[in-house]
Structure formats: C-alpha cells, structure tokens
C-alpha cells in the first residue's frame, strides 16, 4: 500500500494527504478545550476513587472502559456507600442514556460522509463534551476526511480522561481541596463557552436552551438527574421543530 502511494507522486495524492493533516490540525484545535476541561476533572476522579479504596488499576480501567465522567463519580460514591453491583449498573444506565439521543444526532450529521465502521468507533467516544464540540463544528461534517477531524477530537479527549484519572490515582490526597473543588466549574464553563457564540448568532437557539434548562429544573425535583437531563434535552430539542429557521440548520 505504502509503495503505491509513494510511487504515485501525483498532485492528487499530495492534496489528499494535506486535507487529512488539515483536518487533524482542526481537530487538535477544537479538542484542546476539552482536554483542558477533562484533565482537572479526571485527576479529581482519580483522587476520589483512590480515596474510596479503588486500586490504581481499577480506577484507570473504569475510565478506559466506561469513559463517562458523571457516572464514574457516581459509581465511586456508590462503591464507597457499599451499594450493590446491580444498583450501580442500573443507575449508570439511567445517567448515560442521554448519549443515545446525542449519538443519534451525531450519526445523522455524519451519515453521508463517514462509513459505518468508523462511525461505530467514533460513537464509542461520544460524551457530553465531545458531542457538543463536534456538533457545533458541523461545518466540518460535510468536508472530505471529516472523520479525521472527529477522530482527533475524540481521541485526545479520551486520552486526557484516562491519563488524568491515572495521575489522580497516583496523586491521592496531595491536591489541596480548595483547588480540586474550584475545578468543578470547568466543564460548566466549557458548555457556556460553546453555547454563547452560537446564541450570539441566533437568539432562537437561546430559546431552545432556556426551555431545556427549565424542563430540567422542573423534572429534577421529582426524578433522577440523568432522566431529567434526558427529558430537558428531548423536550427542549422538540421546540426546535417550531423555533429553528432554515438559516440555523
């Protein structure tokens, strides 16, 4: 394969590779804020998980296999509280079901440009943050080699989460509490940093977000946070059927 590529030094091959490199660069740029947001949170998770008695291998494995922040914090807490395995797994399912809707939205965005096999791999790396970043950079979705863009964002986010957890497990109790607590705002600040520029372009998008906030606030009084976020997202999104104009799409 490699020989054929080097032999055909045509202009076509060069631009093909250039567009891949460019997409990877774009992915690094778009993924950097996620890395910055993830590292402190992942370190915090590592510290917390080691404090509840999980071994370094266990907590790193959890980050590598589960790869869903909120549910891992919850899992560590429930392990500490001696909850049963079934309880923890069901709670995780409920909390992470929101990815179903996100994955649907993402798959729909890239259905024309990214083949099924790559899409499967990418979907495994979808989180609240990678979904938000990749779907708000949708101008890249239609481009050639867009899989490299999405793959880069998702890969560096994943690596920062897993390595951050590992470092946190090593650090144990060294981090001062005031600093690790302040970092709880990091992910929220990132969500705000993504929403505000979109809202500046179209106030209708703010309306959708506000409905979702209100629905989430309302239902979070009665049901678990996971289901409440699902309902807020689905119902808030449904108002888009009426609010969204063609120029927003």
């Amino acid at each position: 394969m490699h020989d054929i590529t080097t032999l055909s030094k045509g202009y076509g091959t060069l631009t093909h590779d250039a567009s891949k490199t460019k997409m990877i660069q774009k992915g690094l740029q778009a993924g950097m804020p996620i890395v910055l947001g993830y590292l402190p949170v992942a370190v915090t998770f590592g510290v917390l998980a080691s404090q509840v008695g999980m071994s370094l291998t266990e907590l790193t494995l959890m980050s590598a296999l589960v790869y869903a922040g909120a549910s891992q914090f919850m899992g560590a807490n429930m392990i500490a509280a001696q909850a049963s395995a079934i309880e923890i797994v069901v709670a995780t399912f409920v909390l992470n079901f929101r990815h179903f809707i996100m994955s649907f939205s993402f798959s729909n965005l890239v259905r024309e440009t990214i083949p099924l096999k790559s899409r499967l791999l990418l979907s495994l790396g979808l989180t609240d943050e990678t979904f938000a970043v990749t779907s708000l950079k949708k101008e890249n979705a239609g481009e050639k080699n867009s899989g490299y863009f999405f793959g880069t964002v998702i890969l560096i986010a994943y690596l920062s989460w897993v390595s951050g957890s590992f470092i946190g497990g090593l650090l144990g109790e060294i981090i001062p509490e005031q600093l690790s607590q302040s970092m709880g705002i990091a992910l929220y600040a990132m969500f705000i940093g993504l929403l505000v520029p979109a809202v500046k372009k179209s106030l209708r998008l703010l309306l959708i977000a506000l409905v979702a906030m209100f629905v989430n606030l309302l239902f979070s009084q009665f049901i678990s946070p996971g289901w409440s976020i699902v309902l807020g997202t689905v119902i808030g999104g449904a108002t888009g059927i009426y609010f969204l104009k063609d120029e927003d799409l």
Partner: peptide, 22 residues
C-alpha cells in the same frame, strides 16, 4: 430539525441547574 436542535437543548440542560451544585 429536532435532531439539529438537540445540541443546544443538551447544553442548556447540562448547564442548569447542575451549575448550582459546584
């Protein structure tokens, strides 16, 4: 339209009221 609006709705639901629990 529904699926395209999901990211903005998700951001809203993820921000509030969770941000109050920092």
């Amino acid at each position: 339209r529904w699926l395209k609006a999901i990211p903005y709705a998700a951001l809203g639901a993820l921000i509030f009221p969770g941000i109050l629990t920092v």
